[in-house]
Amino acid sequence: MSPILARISNLVLVYLFFFIKTLAAQEPPRLSFELGSQEQRITLGIPFFSAKLQDSVRIEVCKFYLWPFNKLIDFEDSTSLFIPIQSIKKQHKLGLGIDSLTNATAQMIGDLDPTKGMYWTWQNGFIHIKIEGGIGCSHTSKRPFIYHIGGYQSPNNTFRLLSIDGLYEAQTLRIDADTFLAVMVQMPVFELMSPSSRAVIAAEAFRDCIHVTK
């Protein structure tokens, strides 16, 4: 290759680099979700020590619908954990689950496709929140939990608005699994599979365990 050509191609590369960098910098500010235990960040599938339960805990599934986007936030899919702030600003409010009108009329496409595993086929209705895992360090004393929280008809409507201030900044919302599980174990409830008054308590506990990370 001639020196001139080499220099040009270098320039092109440098240009490309900066071009991509500015593109990345221009990515709109976004709201992100993370899984945690109190002030500590945790990872799906990896055990952590729960201060409230004084035991080791492992979360295997954690996913929920974010209203009004009908977007599935699924910790198994790291690309699903963000929402551009821009779209939130237009909404003023965020909620957990699928509202009853959408439940009754929405087209079952995209994140609302029942193949996503967030739909109760036998009695129709989206599952708003799914959390599954186990409590206990050893396999013998392991206590599994399965919470499928849903229901869109009163009095067991489990759709809840999020009560978070300052939603309009780019920030991270942490789902404090420790605090949520403490409420569930207190009841005690280890399995939820259908709409009920206990599911309502669980939906509220889930809403209350979400807070802005410092």
Binding site: T121, Q123, N124
Partner: peptide, 16 residues
Amino acid sequence: GAIQRLDAQALAPIES
């Protein structure tokens, strides 16, 4: 009356 949507009703027998 467990089911409110005729379209989604079909999921019940398919997956039962």
